[in-house]
Write a protein that binds this DNA or RNA. Structure first.
Lengths: 163, 163
DNA sequence: TGCTGATTAATAACATGATATATAACAATG
DNA sequence: CATTGTTATATATCATGTTATTAATCAGCA
């Protein structure tokens, strides 16, 4: 059976990247499922962001993760229910809600950094090791290219009605 | 503000691919929004599959698109309500429901193939033109690598409990 | 000082992926 | 040929992204 997304090449690059990303995430999830970890793989970037950058308000967290703010609000709520992060009001600005790791969250991140993340990183790096180009650099170039001029701008305005 | 997903490299490759894919899709959506097209960009792969492969039962359509069957069932229902595809019972096997393009669906695909898809493809190809490696080949290699041995298998079994 | 506009986060509603399960039809076997 | 297992699809539920909107707070200015 022909893989249509693959056959369509650049036309469906978005769908294809998304599909590969979901595949990688669910594979990674299976790694975590073997452990006693109560967190979906997709929540780790948020924890990693707090680990790297320290406590952050919701909006900046969204920016750091490159997702929209409501997504962060939802994840934070979930992780707070699990006792991994906590939210405190900012002193200067009552609108801002500062998210930080709890003691348990800290412990989870430290353990993951020590025991799990290096293995996952190595597995993914191996997967990409034989590629003919520097994938991460290329992805960065794509991201920069999109940021500079999104596809719809590149397509131009001269497309007439379709039906 | 540091882009954490980007900084984490291979560890978050899945999240990153997904994020780039979603960005590309929503950019493409904006192209379509300028036209009179009543279809989300994410539905085009299904229409393209029917165009390339002819009428297909739900399961084979899922396989051709590389997504799970319930996703196809849902999209087909949506596209059928829009009058772009229709469903007929298979003769040999009453379980199978064969999805095909309607006259309107055919017309939409033909118009898109003629007027829109080449432009989008070109825009995305341009975006990727300056990359230092053959991106599509690399993605194919990643997909093949995942299929051969998913990440969780590559990580190995020797990871202890995390907390 | 009090109004106006901007900013922050929450909520609602939707899109679209997944898995798990139910139902209907087929196939195979005792 | 009836039962049993398999296969194809639909449905339910969840995860997680989006945009649009609302509510609360801040900041600036007449």
């Amino acid at each position: 059976m022909e893989d249509v997304i693959r056959s369509l090449g650049f036309l469906c690059l978005g769908s294809r990247l998304k599909r590969i990303g979901e595949q990688l995430q669910s594979d990674t999830q299976r790694v975590l499922d073997r452990l006693d970890v109560p967190v979906q793989s997709s929540q780790y970037p948020l924890l990693a962001a707090l680990d790297r950058l320290g406590p952050l308000p919701v909006g900046e967290l969204a920016q750091a993760l490159g997702i929209a703010q409501p997504g962060v609000t939802r994840s934070v709520k979930l992780l707070a229910e699990l006792g991994l992060v906590e939210v405190s009001q900012s002193n200067n600005d009552q609108r801002r809600r500062i998210v930080s790791l709890t003691r348990n969250g800290r412990r989870l991140v430290d353990a993951a950094k020590r025991d799990v993340w290096p293995r996952i990183e190595k597995a993914v790096a191996d997967l990409c090791a034989d590629l003919s180009g520097p994938l991460l650099d290329q992805l960065a170039a794509i991201e920069d290219g999109i940021a500079a001029a999104p596809i719809d701008r590149r397509v131009g305005k001269a497309v007439g009605a379709v039906q």
